[in-house]
Design a protein around this nucleic acid. Sequence first.
DNA 1: TTGTATTTTGCATAAAAATGCAATAAATCT
DNA 2: AGATTTATTGCATTTTTATGCAAAATACAA
Lengths: 156, 156
Amino acid sequence: MQKRQDKKTRLQAIRLIVSSQALESQEDLQIELDKAGFPCTQTTLSRDLKQLRISKVRGRNGHSVYALPREGMFSPVMTREEKDKRCWRVVFSGNLMVVHTPPGHASMVAYDIDNAGSPYFLGTVAGDDTVLVVLQEDVKREVAREAIGEIVSQLA
Amino acid sequence: MQKRQDKKTRLQAIRLIVSSQALESQEDLQIELDKAGFPCTQTTLSRDLKQLRISKVRGRNGHSVYALPREGMFSPVMTREEKDKRCWRVVFSGNLMVVHTPPGHASMVAYDIDNAGSPYFLGTVAGDDTVLVVLQEDVKREVAREAIGEIVSQLA
DNA sequence: TTGTATTTTGCATAAAAATGCAATAAATCT
DNA sequence: AGATTTATTGCATTTTTATGCAAAATACAA
């Protein structure tokens, strides 16, 4: 067998390529990777993509393209209980809502809040275990509390 | 050909099944769907999944399961050009300004805001795609909006 | 070093998913 | 009603992706 190429670097190249172009098959990716100086087989690509947790997702047109995984994505295998536990405590201060979560889960919760499209929440900033949510000015805390409850348990 | 079953209903059933169990193949889905009273072929499923924009995503273990589409979940939903073109969304609440950016760009924007040396902005906190800017107490929103506009456009 | 374990990779092949074509049900038009 | 168009669906097949196995490079231990 020939001298191995640096796998780390190849994986990095794959990330780069996948994030910058819409590739529809491993064969296409293989071609691009080859251009970039990383020749390899479809077999290897299949394994690399698995390791990088890259999957094909459908655009509006129905076509599928490869895409990097985004944190905050959780598999449908997560149990109800696990999801409900994502949100620990909610307190308010001025027009800010402070959501406490388990360590490391803040970004996921923030992601869900952002994507819930609620009119009450203007935006979020996530740390490691805390999410800061900026409320619409005239929103009552009760309303906000209920809304966050729905988002967390609903996605749960 | 036999009497057709209601496609609408079948699609609904697929949504339900996919969102409640971790299925690894269309064949598995076919079996579940059959149990639910919607017998059909893999061919039909392939088409249904395409129409529903359901795709396989990888869990942490690397295994793939079908999952309903979630907006904004994957990067390629928006191309790089679209991201660059997208106009920043700026909203206010109290003496806070909330600046939305493309995913991962918040810290860069925050950095630029900090370094712009504007007297209107006391400080910033950046998440992944949101920057929280604390405004000087007596600053008018129009002024703030204009100021941020200048800072941001310098980036582009 | 020498021997052993682990990792990486490709080939051949299996498994999974997508699609061209054709048949026919259902809808629409005249 | 009868004719025409559109939508669904399955079969056969192709295309795409995953994997068992083996070879060889690299890492590791004694």
